[in-house]
Amino acid sequence: MSTNAIKPQQWQDLPNGSWLQEAVEDKLASWWPKVFGYHLLSMGPLSASLEKPNLPIGREFSMVQQGDASLIGSYCNLPVQNGVIDAAVCSLLLDFELDPYRVLRETDRVLISGGYLFIIGFNPLSPAFIGKLLPKYQEQLPWCGRFFTPARVKDWLGLLGYQVIGDERLVYHHLLSNIYDESIWQHALQAWLPGSGSLYIIVARKLDTPLTPILDKQRVRRPNWSTAPTAGRTGHLRSHANKKEII
Rank of each mutant, 00 (worst) to 15 (best):
W31V: 04
I119W: 01
G44C: 03
L193F: 15
L157R: 01
P213H: 10
M63F: 11
G121C: 02
S196P: 06
L14N: 03
W19E: 12
M1S: 13
V171E: 06
N178P: 10
T209I: 14
A88V: 08
F122R: 07
D13I: 08
I85Y: 03
Y137P: 06
K217C: 13
P142Q: 03
V171Q: 00
P124A: 06
N16R: 07
S74C: 00
W31M: 01
A88D: 03
D108S: 13
V164Y: 00
E60M: 10
T107C: 09
R105A: 10
S113F: 09
R59S: 10
Y101I: 07
P79A: 06
L50D: 04
R105Y: 03
E139H: 14
T230S: 14
Q9N: 13
P8S: 01
Y172S: 04
Q163K: 14
V89Y: 05
Q81R: 15
P210S: 03
D13H: 14
Y180Q: 14
S226E: 14
P79T: 01
W185C: 09
W185I: 12
G235E: 10
R169M: 11
N77E: 10
A241W: 13
F122K: 05
G158R: 11
E51F: 10
L50S: 05
T107V: 12
S198M: 03
G232V: 14
G161Y: 03
L46V: 04
S47G: 05
K34S: 14
Q163R: 13
C90T: 00
F122S: 06
S198V: 03
C90S: 02
E97L: 07
D181W: 11
L193V: 15
I130G: 10
V164I: 06
P56N: 09
E245A: 14
S47I: 01
S2F: 11
V110M: 04
I72F: 05
L189T: 12
H173Y: 08
E97F: 02
R109Y: 05
P33V: 05
